[in-house]
């Protein structure tokens, strides 16, 4: 009896906190956006020499800060482990969770959270040594595969090989660092992990050029920012901050030319650069601030994980829809 009262109380407290107050108001009052990032993942969120956070996930937070406060640097980062991330958001410790989090039905529907979009389409891929001369994973029947134990990658791999009637020998390791050491030592022919990770693992090899990431992607891992359910205004702001970055890329507005583009004659660009903020409860230059301070989606991608970074991840699925990718943003009008 007493136990149930306690549980009821706990539940009441939990739901009481998750149905939150006006996040935008809190953000303006604090004068910073509280952003949950990963404790350290190359290209996505990592602290640089000066202790400033950098990465594609970090740029989402910076964009929201630019949109709401007019200054992309007004972000307070909270590094979170995978286990803590949702509680931190539910309890109001952070305003946005931008921490390479996969959008799934369970998370979206049962945690009291909303996914505000996808800032990186990830998926499980394969890496092989170029000595094998393999062009596709389908040629790898009977291969030994280095894999991190206890992850969904392990299950996806089993499904994929079974579906294609192929055999494989799993060589399991505890951490991703060990998998790459195993791969380097020749314990396996192939290494499998999420593609974004494959690229950063590849750099860890003594000779990165001798390993190739195969084109096959065998699972869907859309990663995106998450907000609390129940505050639609804030949900919209985060969603449209991301859309503004994608739209800016589509229209060719960059960090460098944002100022000139403000005087553009193109009505679509004009709408992007001002005039629509009121509907979101923001100032009119919200998207101008995003583009001029953070840059467009393509710039953020290239600088953090793409050609401008050591990771050299190709755009692939993350190219604009007009260029064969999946990044597509509704129009700003």
């Amino acid at each position: 009896m007493r136990k149930s009262v306690f549980l009821g109380l706990a539940a009441a407290v939990m739901f009481g906190t998750s149905a939150s107050a006006d996040t935008l108001e809190t953000v303006i009052k604090n004068d910073h956006v509280k952003c949950g990032v990963s404790t350290g993942l190359a290209g996505f969120s990592a602290a640089d020499e000066k202790g400033d956070w950098q990465g594609i996930d970090v740029d989402v937070c910076r964009a929201v800060a630019a949109a709401t406060l007019g200054d992309a640097s007004k972000v307070k980062y909270t590094p979170l482990t995978a286990k803590e991330r949702f509680t931190a958001l539910q309890s109001g410790e952070i305003d946005i969770l931008s921490r390479n989090t996969t959008w799934t039905l369970t998370r979206d529907a049962s945690l009291g959270l909303n996914f505000a979009g996808v800032n990186y389409y990830d998926g499980q891929g394969f890496m092989v040594s170029d000595k094998l001369g393999v062009k596709s994973a389908l040629e790898l029947d009977g291969a030994a595969v280095c894999i991190q134990a206890g992850t969904t990658t392990e299950l996806n791999l089993a499904d994929y090989f079974k579906a294609n009637n192929m055999e494989y020998k799993a060589v399991t390791y505890d951490t991703s660092d060990q998998t790459i050491k195993g791969f380097e030592a020749g314990r396996c022919d192939m290494l499998t992990s999420d593609q974004s990770q494959l690229y950063s693992l590849r750099i860890k090899l003594a000779k990165p050029d001798e390993a190739v990431v195969l084109p096959e992607v065998i699972s869907k891992e859309p990663l995106g920012p998450v907000v609390r359910q129940g505050d639609d205004k804030w949900f919209n702001i985060v969603k449209w901050s991301l859309f503004a970055m994608v739209n800016a890329e589509e229209m060719g507005v960059t960090k460098a030319n944002a100022k000139e583009m403000k005087d553009s004659k193109d009505p679509a660009i004009q709408r992007l650069m001002g005039g629509q903020g009121e509907k979101l409860g923001l100032s009119d230059d919200w998207s101008y601030n995003i583009v001029s301070q953070v840059g467009n989606y393509g710039e953020s991608f290239e600088a953090n994980v793409g050609s401008g970074s050591p990771l050299k991840i190709g755009r692939g699925l993350n190219a604009l829809w007009s260029k064969g990718g999946l990044q597509y943003a509704p129009p700003i009008r």
């Binding site: 350290g40 990592a46 590094p79 482990t81 803590e84």
Partner: peptide
């Protein structure tokens, strides 16, 4: 494991996540 960066945390998560110095 709760996201505080002690000595090992810095070595593992900050130095280890620097894309310019992987490996």
């Amino acid at each position: 494991i709760i996201g505080l960066f002690d000595l090992l945390g810095v070595v593992q998560n900050v130095l280890g996540a620097d894309s310019k110095w992987l490996g």
